[in-house]
Simulated assay, not measured.
Amino acid sequence: MKINQNKLIMDSDFKVCVNETLEYKFNSSNPNKLDVIKLSNSEFHVLKNKKSYNILIEKNNFYLKEYTISVNSNSYQIKISDKLDMLIKEMGFHNGLSKKINNIKAPMPGIILNVLVKENQPVKEGETILILEAMKMENAITSPKDAIIKSISISANQTVEKGQLLLEFA
């Protein structure tokens, strides 16, 4: 999914799971595309079936594709799965690629707000290890696997560039 000229464009098949109960499938040929206007980096206005919706992205986890959004002041937990995620689940496998990750690099430029771990500290998969602020949004960076922190290359209030090494796992 990408924003282009203040409109939301769906560029491949994906599934959205809401509050772990409702599932919606989308694809690029979906005739009922949403009319979306980007108001800020975390706020959007959506028109669908002549109804107006105000959407605010409250929290996001870039690596796990999990988001907390507010739609007209009602909060929802969202998980997005792309074609690869759906294929891996359909085949009965878990995404083994994330288990081979030995370091974390900045997914985007920003400022490190908080480093929540120390060297030699054990962490669990999904545990928040640092907070990166980018485009005025706080992004929780989580551990992709159970591991021990080998080294930390950044500190709080440090500016980082996309792809910069943040920390390594033992």
Rank of each mutant, 00 (worst) to 15 (best):
T68D: 04
L167R: 00
N157E: 03
H45Y: 05
F14Y: 02
E58A: 13
D11A: 13
K2D: 00
I3F: 04
L47I: 15
P107Y: 02
I37G: 13
M86D: 07
D13E: 01
K51A: 14
D85K: 04
K100W: 08
L97H: 10
L167N: 01
L64K: 10
S98H: 08
P109L: 10
N114W: 08
K79M: 07
H45N: 01
K51Y: 12
P109D: 02
S73W: 09
I69L: 05
A170H: 11
M108I: 11
I149A: 00
N30S: 09
L64H: 05
Q158P: 13
I57T: 10
V160W: 00
I104C: 01
P109W: 03
K51N: 14
S12Y: 12
S29R: 00
V18S: 03
Q158C: 13
P107E: 00
S143Y: 11
L8V: 09
N41A: 14
I148S: 02
S98G: 05
M108G: 03
L34D: 00
Q77M: 09
I88Q: 04
D35S: 12
Y24Q: 08
L130A: 02
N61K: 04
V18Q: 03
L34E: 01
Q5H: 14
K59W: 03
L132W: 00
L116C: 10
V36C: 08
T128Y: 07
K150T: 04
M137G: 03
N19I: 04
L113V: 15
K118S: 07
I37E: 14
K50W: 10
P109A: 10
K99I: 12
S28N: 04
N103C: 09
M10Q: 06
L34N: 01
E138H: 11
I55F: 08
L84M: 12
E161H: 13
Y53K: 02
A147I: 09
L132C: 02
S29C: 00
K7H: 09
H94T: 12
I104V: 07
S98I: 15
N30Y: 07
D146N: 15
N49C: 10
N27A: 07
K136I: 07
S143E: 06
L84C: 10
K48F: 15
E43M: 06
N6I: 02
L56D: 05
N114C: 12
V117E: 03
E23P: 08
G92L: 09
I3V: 06
L116D: 03
T128C: 14
K100L: 13
A156R: 07
S75F: 12
N72R: 04
K105A: 05
L165M: 05
E43C: 06
L47F: 14
G126D: 03
P107N: 02
N61M: 07
K100N: 08
V36W: 01
K33M: 09
E23C: 13
K105T: 13
Q77E: 05
C17P: 01
V46L: 11
I131V: 11
K50E: 09
K162C: 04
L132M: 03
N74T: 15
P122T: 10
N60V: 13
G126P: 06
V18G: 08
D11L: 15
S12L: 09
I152W: 02
A170V: 14
F62W: 07
E58I: 15
K136A: 02
I112Q: 00
V117L: 13
N114L: 14
